[in-house]
Structure formats: structure tokens, C-alpha cells
């Protein structure tokens, strides 16, 4: 049984690691031959074992959980000092803005965020660690930005905010900063599994003229140098981040679009389904490890 399980893991990992173009085929072979190998190899293999090994194909990790490191550990000492010092961290200009918006009610019809949710430091603690998740009313996958806009249109009777607007970044950074120090906790279940698998396949698909997948930099070559920069593992625990290059705060979707532009691929629009699926996969990837929420982060 151990032999057959190992074989499948290696098979799936080869597909993931070395030959991305054949990933789907290899995964298919791995899944198809799974019952055969189990039946031939070990007669006593029961249904529960098969279930687990099937899961290990879909949920295979290229980097072992104990080696996962926050992007914070890859940046320079100066930037680390800037991020950990709340007085100096320029992202706190947006957090302060978000705090004002959180407490302010625009009219009698539209309650403020605080009138429903209370103090953000208590009620919003741990909330951002679960996103993206399925919205129960619409059944769609939403991230923190989309949730803010749903709240605005459903309960506050206001227009949705533009993604990447100062107000949106203010509220999301304020809410995310309430979860600082908590581990990411994105779960995959029957409802969001389809999104997860789509996100996963995007992560391992070569894209653009440069023809690279996310995995080539962030899983196979992390800690090496790309020009002057150390390649990180691409975790999402610090978002939204203040990037010195942007000279302002920016969301995770903007950062992924910057990566897509770097490999000269089609840049999925902000808040698009593809980016949401990818965000779900990235959230799962950073969960169950030592990585904790550190937003708002500072990056070069």
C-alpha cells in the first residue's frame, strides 16, 4: 500500500513539477490507474484509503508545509523595519482612512459598517483569513473586496466602490489588519472545489510570450534571484500591500496582474473569475502552515 501511494504521489508530482504541459495528462493517468494499482498491489486496500490517495493528488503540495515562508522573510531589512513599525508603515495612511470610513454613516438609510459589525478589532478579527469564500445568497465566490461591495449594495444602499479605489483599499486594509498574527484558514469543500481546481490549473498553466506558470518561479525557484529581487514563494498573507514601485497601496489582484504583465500574458481584469479562483488556490496554499496574516505589508 505504501509503495502504491508513493508511486501515485511521485507521478502527480512529476506532472506538476517537471513537465507542466503534460500535467493534465499525467494527472489523468495517475487518477485512472489509481484503483488498478491499489487493486493489484494490495488486496486489502479499503475505500477510505483510496479516497485519501485521490485527495493527495488534487491537494499535492510542491513545497512541504514546514518549508512555507511568508514573503516578509524575503524582503530587505529596511523594508522589514518599515512594515513592522506601524508609525512608519506608509500603508497605515490607508488603514486610518479605512477606519474613518468604517465608522461613518452617509445617511439615515445607509448604516455604517460599525453599526452592524461593531468594533473592527474584535468582530473582524480572523475574518480576512477565510476569504475568498462562497457567498451563501448568490452562491458565487467572493473575496474581501467583493464582500465589501456586496455589503454596500445589499445593506447600505450605496454604490459599489471601484476596485483599487482609495476607499476600497482603505476598508480592506483596515479589516485585514484586524487579523494580524492569525494563520490563514482557507478551506476547500464541495461548494468551492470547482473554483479551487480551476485556480489550481491556472497556477500550473504556462502563460504569455515568456511561457511561464506561477509554479516555475514561486515553487521551483523561490529564494533564487530574479534580477535584483529574491523570488518569494508568492503567499497572500500580507495583502493589500504598499509597493514602493506603485507608491501606493494595492490589492492582490493588482499584484497578480503585474506578474501576468511580466510574463507578457493576458491580464485578467480586476475581480475577474479567473483571479478569484486563483486567489482561492493561493489562500489554500498558504493555509495550514506557519504563515500568519501581516497585512498591510510593504514591498519593493
Amino acid at each position: 500500500m505504501i509503495y502504491s501511494l508513493n508511486f501515485i504521489c511521485i507521478c502527480a508530482r512529476c506532472g506538476v513539477v517537471s513537465q507542466i504541459r503534460n500535467y493534465k495528462i499525467r494527472l489523468l493517468i495517475a487518477v485512472l490507474t489509481l484503483p488498478l494499482v491499489c487493486a493489484v498491489g494490495v488486496a486489502s486496500a479499503n475505500a477510505a484509503d483510496i479516497n485519501q490517495s485521490e485527495q493527495s493528488v488534487e491537494f499535492a503540495r510542491v513545497i512541504p508545509p514546514e518549508q512555507l515562508r511568508s514573503g516578509f522573510t524575503f524582503i530587505s531589512d529596511d523594508l522589514r523595519y518599515l512594515q513592522t513599525n506601524d508609525d512608519l508603515n506608509p500603508a497605515f495612511l490607508w488603514v486610518i482612512q479605512g477606519e474613518t470610513l468604517w465608522k461613518q454613516a452617509s445617511s439615515k438609510d445607509s448604516p455604517s459598517c460599525q453599526s452592524c459589525h461593531g468594533e473592527s478589532n474584535q468582530s473582524m478579527r480572523g475574518v480576512s483569513t477565510k476569504y475568498p469564500l462562497i457567498d451563501k445568497k448568490s452562491g458565487e465566490l467572493v473575496n474581501l473586496e467583493a464582500r465589501v461591495n456586496l455589503c454596500r449594495t445589499r445593506y447600505q444602499h450605496m454604490n459599489p466602490l471601484n476596485l483599487e479605489s482609495e476607499e476600497m483599499l482603505g476598508i480592506t486594509s483596515y479589516v485585514a489588519s484586524a487579523s494580524r498574527g492569525l494563520p490563514l484558514n482557507v478551506r476547500v469543500d464541495d461548494q468551492n472545489k470547482a473554483h479551487f481546481l480551476r485556480g489550481r490549473s491556472l497556477y500550473y498553466t504556462r502563460m504569455g510570450q515568456i511561457n511561464l506558470a506561477c509554479t516555475h518561479c514561486h515553487e521551483q525557484n523561490w529564494s533564487k534571484k530574479l534580477q535584483g529581487e529574491t523570488i518569494s514563494q508568492g503567499h497572500i498573507n500580507d495583502y493589500p500591500v504598499y509597493r514602493l514601485e506603485w507608491q501606493r497601496l494595492g490589492s492582490l489582484h493588482r499584484r497578480i496582474r503585474a506578474c501576468l504583465s511580466g510574463v507578457r500574458a493576458y491580464m485578467f481584469p480586476l475581480g475577474s473569475k479567473e483571479l478569484l479562483d486563483l486567489e482561492l488556490f493561493l489562500g489554500w496554499r498558504s493555509s495550514d502552515s506557519k504563515i500568519v496574516v501581516e497585512s498591510p505589508g510593504v514591498r519593493r
Binding site: D87, L88, F92, L93, W94, Q247, R248
Partner: peptide, 9 residues
């Protein structure tokens, strides 16, 4: 005394 101003400059 530190001053931090949000401005696009």
C-alpha cells in the same frame, strides 16, 4: 517628530 502625508506627488 515624524510627519507622513498621503499625497501622489
Amino acid at each position: 517628530v515624524r510627519i507622513l502625508i498621503q499625497h501622489p506627488m
